[in-house]
């Protein structure tokens, strides 16, 4: 059974089509990434799927329930981490977790156990007595994600959940989510950090101007849309303008840039197997020495940008 089944979904605000005839499905245990530029329709889609706003048209089933007729049943089984902050300002971290569990009718004993686990898991134990208003943005964000795990759910919506988190906290959060997915949780995930999407998502849909442009696995998206690879190399001599001029004349080279931070050259090409031997030949001709060289695969970000550029054109 599909956990989410969306067919011809549209949401209009007056003349503006925030979501325009969108369709996709999400399977049980899947992490479904929903990527797009600002204002593409990601948050509106989440608001519709979480029953916060009514769709203008289309058929949507979430966890087997009709969105229009069985909103309450859907809300009973989902968790949502909104893009915007949400917290009770006067309540401490552990008080906020406990109160949220109470709201969801979680028994007292279970609440106490979960509070302890989540405080440690999300690095909030030291700040457990601090009122939410006095937390840093990153701490409040961690609390917001942790809080959602106070109650049981089958489907979790995460709308840019790692905004404001440092790298360590971000990775810890993503690993925590991965563990939950192993235990059967399904996640609908939006982010602007594409490494996160690649790390977490089984499939990704790219939305632009309210329409889904493509849906595939991260690997397939990179394969299809991340056409160019990068050959990265360093010279023992540091820089060589002559070598750069010669490399630019190679037909299969799209562009060459030097990274000012470490002096490495990045050669963008669709055919690294042709370009690499030529690099060695040219370097030898100029009596230069290549100390390191490797092929960098296209990133999801490359693919994402390429998808949006294609859609625009």
């Amino acid at each position: 059974m599909d956990i989410i089944a969306v067919e011809s979904l549209s949401k209009h605000y007056g003349d503006k089509k925030a979501v325009d005839d969108v369709g996709f499905t999400v399977s049980k245990g899947e992490v479904f990434g929903f990527l797009g530029p600002n204002g593409a329709g990601k948050t509106t889609t989440i608001k519709v799927l979480t029953t916060l706003v009514r769709p203008t048209s289309g058929n949507v089933r979430v966890l087997g329930h009709d969105l229009r007729k069985e909103a309450k049943q859907i809300r009973n089984k989902i968790g949502v981490v909104q893009q915007q902050e949400s917290y009770d300002q006067n309540i401490s971290v552990e008080g906020g977790l406990d109160l949220y569990g109470f709201l969801w009718d979680v028994p007292k004993q279970k609440r106490a156990e979960r509070v302890e686990i989540l405080l440690k898991q999300f690095g909030l134990y030291e700040a457990r007595k601090t009122p939410s208003l006095d937390l840093s943005i990153g701490q409040r964000r961690r609390l917001q994600v942790a809080r959602e795990f106070m109650h049981d759910m089958d489907l979790l919506f995460l709308d840019e959940p790692t905004v404001g988190l440092d790298s360590l906290a971000r990775r810890a959060t993503l690993d925590f989510l991965k563990e939950k997915v192993k235990n059967g949780l399904t996640i609908f995930f939006t982010t602007h950090i594409l490494e996160e999407a690649e790390y977490l998502c089984n499939r990704i849909a790219v939305i632009n101007n309210g329409k889904i442009v493509t849906t595939d696995t991260p690997q397939n998206l990179k394969r299809k849309f991340g056409q160019s690879k990068s050959v990265d190399f360093k010279l023992l001599e540091g820089t060589s303008p002559e070598l750069v001029k010669l490399i630019e004349r190679i037909d299969d080279v799209n562009k060459i840039v030097q990274d000012v931070s470490d002096g490495a050259y990045h050669v963008t090409t669709a055919k690294p197997e042709v370009v690499i031997p030529m690099l060695y030949q040219l370097a030898a001709r100029l009596n230069l020495h290549i100390t390191s060289i490797y092929i960098a695969e296209p990133t999801l970000e490359d693919a994402f940008i390429s998808i949006l550029q294609e859609d625009k054109s």
């Binding site: 029953t51 916060l52 309450k72 809300r75 949502v80 909104q82 915007q84 902050e85 949400s86 300002q89």
Partner: peptide, 18 residues
């Protein structure tokens, strides 16, 4: 006012409440 300002209004409406 505070529930709207601090995002709890939407959060509650996405929970098991009407």
């Amino acid at each position: 006012w505070f529930d709207r300002r601090h995002g709890m209004f939407e959060q509650i409406l996405m929970g098991p409440f009407t």
